[in-house]
Design a binder for these strands. Structure first.
Lengths: 204, 204
DNA sequence: CTTGTATTTGACTATCTAGTAAACTATTAT
DNA sequence: ATAATAGTTTACTAGATAGTCAAATACAAG
């Protein structure tokens, strides 16, 4: 009952876009409203601060977009090392597209926002952490499967997953800083190297 | 001739501290002035914007502090893999200290600021890039030496260095986001793993 | 000691920004 | 059709922020 609206969704999308492109601290509520085509009064009807909006935007983006992509890339129907290689390749392909559309390599919004806000905004930090932890689990599971089939040496899969994740996010952030896709090109190979799967990789 | 002052140095230090602890976008000129014990008029006597100050602060920090530390850690008097292992260990030790002093893991200021400002402030971006590139060269050189003595398999040393650097910075950023030193504890071992020096590492 | 210069100070303006409130409008269920 | 509800609009306030300027001050060197 009552009026319907997609203003909330437009705000979520505009916020993530702007914050990803610029940064959390520098993006104003006014700018988000303008991009979303929403008046500030309406903003405060839906959210009560930039922080609240950012958390909702990160969550929405992961639940509505990210998760399904990761599920497909890490599908159990693929050989475990192919999942990792394919994922890393898709990261590169994705950033190629981002660079074409935005004119710059932007990296991973969750990681950038998380790093920026971690010491100032506990709620955003916690949401970013939650999403990132959730992503690490995809790596961990693939590594465990690889170990089970013997394509990767045994060892602490959780630790290896963290390591691989650091390589992945570090490369993305580096690519953003230098606006250079070269940091991502070698990611598929380097990922398998770091897991000690060199021989397997060559065979694949 | 005229009055002397260390206000400029105090501003540089206060700026780096605040930006490292919080973020570039959120730190105001007023806050920097307050921390440095300097009036805003004096700020504008020495610098003409927050951006200019940030660039000078990054540069000062690298030239006066960072470089000498890296030189010592990557001293050619050490076996190449010991340089890398020792460096990674010192990163961990350093962040333990940071956590004690600031209450939080803060990661690498250059990388954080670089990532945050890369799309908005070309001058800061360029300075961060310059410093980071310069740091990658330490890795590259150590890797080349390791390859020469046969403790690491041959291959594109520049690419391997980028990779190792991504792992290193990614781990630091991750540690910042989660405020958790665990992401750094395994860095020394993981670094040698990624270079394919596992057997050597065990021997060391 | 005095002169020139480097630095400091405080008061100021203009602009931006977050957040509020109340009147207004569209939609839907009954 | 109309009442209740969901969303919108506009205009507003208070405070923060960047940046300016001219007068004051301290110091170094001759």
């Amino acid at each position: 009952m009552g009026r319907t609206s997609d203003a909330k969704e437009r705000l979520l999308e505009a916020a993530l876009d702007l914050i990803w492109e610029r940064s959390y601290g520098v993006v104003t509520i006014d700018a988000i409203c303008e991009k979303a085509g929403v008046k500030k009064g309406s903003f405060y009807y839906f959210f009560d601060s930039k922080s609240t909006l950012a958390v909702a935007a990160l969550n929405e983006n992961w639940i509505q977009d990210g998760k399904a992509k990761w599920d497909a890339l890490f599908s159990a129907s693929l050989p475990p090392l192919e999942r990792i290689r394919g994922f890393m390749q898709s990261v590169y392909d994705g950033q190629v597209k981002v660079q074409k559309e935005h004119g710059k390599v932007l990296g991973c919004p969750c990681f950038s926002i998380g790093s920026e806000t971690s010491t100032q905004d506990e709620v955003i930090r916690a949401k970013a952490q939650e999403i990132l932890q959730s992503q690490i689990r995809y790596f961990e599971s693939a590594i465990r499967d690889a170990q089970a089939e013997g394509s990767v040496p045994p060892g602490d899969a959780a630790a290896k997953a963290k390591c691989l994740f650091a390589l992945f996010e570090g490369s993305l952030a580096q690519a953003r800083i230098q606006n250079d896709l070269d940091f991502l090109r070698t990611l598929p190979d380097a990922s398998l190297d770091i897991l000690g799967a060199r021989s397997l990789k060559v065979a694949a």
